[in-house]
Simulated assay, not measured.
Amino acid sequence: MIEQIPGLPAGALGFRASGQVTASDYSGVLVPDIEAAFAVNRKLRLLYQIGPDFTGFDAGAMWEDAQLGFRHFSGWDRVALVTDVQWLRVTAAAMGFAVPAEFKLFHNAQFDEAMAWIGEPRPAEDDGNK
């Protein structure tokens, strides 16, 4: 199952995966929300939490994820992946260089830190009024 995480700043979306994630979870929740956000934003930030009760992705969900990433390959500004699932952490660490965005990996215990990071302005966004 995938559900949206509320309370993120404008230009940022958050999703939490739990249990078994299917292609219909992507096509029914994640894809429409991301497509709608890209319709009004040139760049997006994404917080994606794979929760502690996550059991896996089916093959269709993995395909949907890959298609979505390629469709908006250069549209990501910042991506935070929050998970304790070891194979996902290893894969993300190994492939993070291929993500055309600022990418950071967090543990589930660091969820609040990931939320804060996804909303931080980039140095170029800083207006200098510190």
Results as ranks from 00 to 15, higher is better:
1 M>S: 12
2 I>E: 14
2 I>W: 03
2 I>Y: 01
3 E>W: 00
4 Q>S: 13
5 I>A: 06
6 P>M: 05
7 G>Q: 03
8 L>S: 05
10 A>C: 00
11 G>S: 02
12 A>P: 05
14 G>D: 03
14 G>R: 05
16 R>F: 00
16 R>V: 08
18 S>E: 05
20 Q>A: 10
21 V>L: 03
22 T>L: 08
23 A>S: 08
28 G>K: 04
28 G>Q: 07
30 L>H: 00
30 L>R: 08
30 L>A: 06
31 V>G: 11
32 P>M: 11
35 E>L: 10
38 F>E: 12
40 V>I: 07
42 R>E: 15
42 R>K: 08
44 L>T: 04
44 L>A: 14
46 L>K: 07
48 Y>D: 10
49 Q>L: 03
51 G>K: 07
51 G>M: 04
53 D>V: 01
53 D>F: 00
57 F>L: 06
61 A>V: 04
62 M>W: 04
62 M>Q: 10
63 W>K: 13
65 D>L: 09
65 D>R: 10
67 Q>Y: 07
68 L>V: 12
68 L>H: 13
69 G>K: 14
69 G>I: 13
70 F>L: 14
73 F>T: 14
76 W>T: 02
78 R>N: 04
80 A>L: 06
81 L>N: 06
81 L>S: 13
82 V>F: 07
84 D>L: 02
84 D>G: 15
85 V>H: 13
86 Q>C: 11
87 W>K: 00
87 W>I: 10
89 R>F: 11
91 T>E: 03
91 T>S: 14
92 A>T: 11
94 A>R: 10
95 M>R: 12
96 G>E: 12
96 G>I: 05
96 G>M: 13
98 A>T: 08
101 A>S: 13
101 A>H: 02
102 E>A: 11
103 F>I: 14
104 K>H: 04
106 F>A: 10
107 H>P: 06
107 H>M: 13
109 A>Q: 14
110 Q>T: 06
111 F>K: 10
111 F>C: 02
111 F>S: 05
112 D>I: 02
113 E>I: 02
114 A>T: 08
114 A>V: 07
117 W>Y: 01
127 D>T: 04
128 G>Y: 04
128 G>I: 02
130 K>H: 12
130 K>W: 13
